[in-house]
Design a protein around this nucleic acid. Structure first.
Length: 617
DNA sequence: ATAGGGTTAG
């Protein structure tokens, strides 16, 4: 006789639990466990509870119910439920559970404090952290590196980086995690330099060390440095993992570095990096911000249904917005809703921005209203900013003013800036200069505000007043960012600064610019728009100044060095001026070139003499 | 089962 060699129910349930990855499976397993009455088997029950509380699978309410059904939970179970609460929307409940754990006299282990301290971190609860610190010492975990690292982490992220440093210096057996927490801590407290120092001192760095530094550099706006660390990291023998790639893609998005972004995309495909929702979103965002909407669409199209969350839809909608494809942004917004995805407050900034850039005034107003009545989202100051921009741009200055007056919050510099912009576009110089004067007072370390004011004064012929504003800016030592445009050729980035002459091909570039100006004058009756210039110069000098704007230098360079008919891509750090915009349109027609220019906030696609922004920016 | 990640107005 044969007997089937059946696995014991205990063992088979264990295997099922090991391979379980979602709540539905978990509930099925639970049904089976109840049937076979092995939920009372401690090892299985523990495993089951840790799954219920794990960040990927878990469901807190469900976990709490399961936990309530256990008569005397062991340490691991208490840890699991504390962890679940520390990651939840109400981390303070972790403290309550910890109280109960204390009164049940279950011993601690080295995992208990890290979870509890995570709740402190999520609540920025320094006082509680200090109390826990006392307990750590009292209960004999004073040299446990897990507990100490968790304490370091709270202090480092709750404004006590110096105290964290003191602790760090005194931990005898600090590990890589301790070092990495310090790197991240300095970065989050805005001290990239010290973070870099710690990184350099660290004896054996790992992928997290490199990535923490890279992500800090990206956050601090030092994306060029972040990309160079990507190569250093690989030379040091580290592979890029998903987290590193997400950070680096953001760096490319910030810089408009399409070539490096594409390289990272290839890396993902060739090295089996999982395109999860974060990487998918980072890729889409990178292509959007580097001006390649078609590739962004392709990446989106390849994602599976459950990877398409509200973030990635928002990235696409924002993409259509900044590329001047307002109608498509609205269509995608509808598509998203039909997929059952609920828009969040960021989605609304994207879709309102699309309406604003696309001149879709009525649609924008409807959407703004729908935030509250359909989605129960209260518009924030950002949304009001979009609406002021939308109304102002389209010439509804009074409506914009009313909206500002009736806003539930105090208008900030951005709101006034949008209103000033509207005054400028619609030639209401008087109100514009009043607002400009106010802005210079409240936003006095922002050079753009002085320039806006000086420009609007100059437009009224008030040269002296304009000069006073510029002098004030100079005397206050407000840092000004010079106009910069870059263009990439065979992987090399060529950067042009307004008025600078230090490129090896400068003579050729100037010759080309002269030719362009001549052709434009002859064929199109173009005259340089010197009126917008605020410099107090003779007309001829103004023409020279305007002719040396960095975007013109970059376009001329592109015309010289790329094949006829190919697209020229330029990235600019400031907004494009009216004259450069006119020239770019005419160049696109006369030289039969598509020019894709990213300015500080959006894209201009110049083609056949017109621009995707419909001259409305 | 403690460390690092994507979308935000002008």
């Amino acid at each position: 006789m044969f007997t089937l060699k059946a696995e014991s129910p205990l063992q088979s349930t264990w295997t099922l639990l090991e391979n379980c990855s979602n709540m539905k499976q978990l509930k099925q397993i639970q049904a089976q466990m109840i049937k076979t009455a092995i939920l009372s088997e401690p090892k299985l029950a523990t495993k089951f509870l840790t799954l219920c509380t794990s960040p990927h699978v878990g469901d807190l309410l469900y976990a709490q119910r399961v936990f309530n059904g256990i008569t005397s939970p062991n340490t691991v179970m208490w840890n699991a439920i504390i962890r679940a609460y520390s990651n939840s929307k109400e981390p303070e409940l972790a403290f309550l559970l910890y109280q109960q754990m204390l009164s049940s006299s279950v011993p601690h282990n080295s995992y208990t404090f890290p979870f509890l301290l995570k709740a402190c971190r999520n609540l920025s609860a320094l006082g509680e952290a200090l109390q826990v610190h006392g307990l750590v010492i009292k209960l004999g975990f004073g040299s446990d590196v897990f507990a100490l690292n968790a304490l370091l982490h709270v202090y480092a992220l709750c404004g006590e980086i110096r105290y964290a440093r003191q602790m760090f210096d005194n931990i005898p057996e600090r590990d890589a995690v301790s070092w990495n927490i310090m790197i991240d801590g300095y970065i989050k407290s805005g001290d990239v330099k010290t973070a870099y120092g710690i990184f350099l001192d660290m004896p054996s760095k790992n992928v997290v060390s490199w990535t923490s530094l890279i992500s800090g550099l990206v956050e601090a706006g030092l994306s060029v440095k972040a990309l160079s660390l990507c190569y250093e990291m690989q030379n040091a023998g580290f592979e890029l993992d998903g987290v590193a790639i997400a950070c680096l893609l953001t760096a490319c998005a910030n810089l408009g570095a399409l070539d490096q972004g594409r390289w990272l995309h290839f890396y993902v495909l060739n090295n089996g990096v999982d395109v999860d929702r974060v990487i998918g979103c980072a890729l889409v965002n990178m292509y959007v911000k580097c001006g390649d909407m078609e590739e962004a669409l392709r990446v989106f199209g390849k994602l599976k249904g459950d990877q398409k969350d509200v973030c990635i839809w928002t990235a696409m909608i924002d993409g259509f917005a900044i590329h001047g494809r307002g109608m498509e942004a609205l269509e995608w917004f509808d598509l998203m809703r039909r997929e059952g995805i609920r828009p969040n407050s960021i989605t609304f900034t994207a879709v309102l921005r699309a309406c604003s850039y696309g001149g879709l005034v009525e649609e924008g107003k409807e959407l703004f209203k729908s935030m509250k009545c359909l989605y129960n989202l209260s518009p924030s100051i950002e949304h009001y900013g979009c609406m002021v921009d939308l109304l102002g741009r389209s010439g509804r200055l009074n409506e914009a003013k009313e909206l500002i007056k009736n806003m539930p919050m105090k208008p900030n510099a951005v709101i006034w800036g949008a209103f000033l912009k509207a005054c400028w576009i619609h030639r209401d110089f008087l109100v514009g200069s009043q607002i400009g004067a106010h802005l210079v007072e409240v936003d006095s370390d922002h050079s753009g505000r002085y320039i806006q004011l000086a420009t609007i004064l100059a437009a009224q012929g008030k040269w002296k007043e304009a000069a006073v504003v510029r002098l004030k800016m100079k005397n206050l030592g407000v840092p000004i960012s010079p106009g910069k445009s870059s263009i990439t050729l065979n992987g090399i980035v060529h950067e042009f600064l307004a008025g600078h002459q230090d490129h090896p091909q400068m003579e050729q570039i100037h010759l080309k610019l002269k030719q362009i100006a001549e052709r434009l004058r002859q064929d199109e009756g173009y005259e340089p728009a010197t009126k917008d210039l605020l410099l107090d110069l003779e007309n001829e000098d103004k023409e020279t100044a305007i002719a040396q704007h960095s975007e013109k230098l970059a376009i001329a360079f592109g015309l010289i060095n790329t094949k006829p008919g190919t697209t020229i891509r330029v990235v600019k750090n400031l907004r494009i001026c009216r004259d450069c915009h006119t020239v770019a349109k005419l160049v696109s027609q006369i030289y039969c070139r598509e020019i894709i220019m990213r300015d500080r906030v959006r894209f201009h696609h110049f083609r056949d003499g017109s621009c995707s922004c419909k001259d409305y920016w």
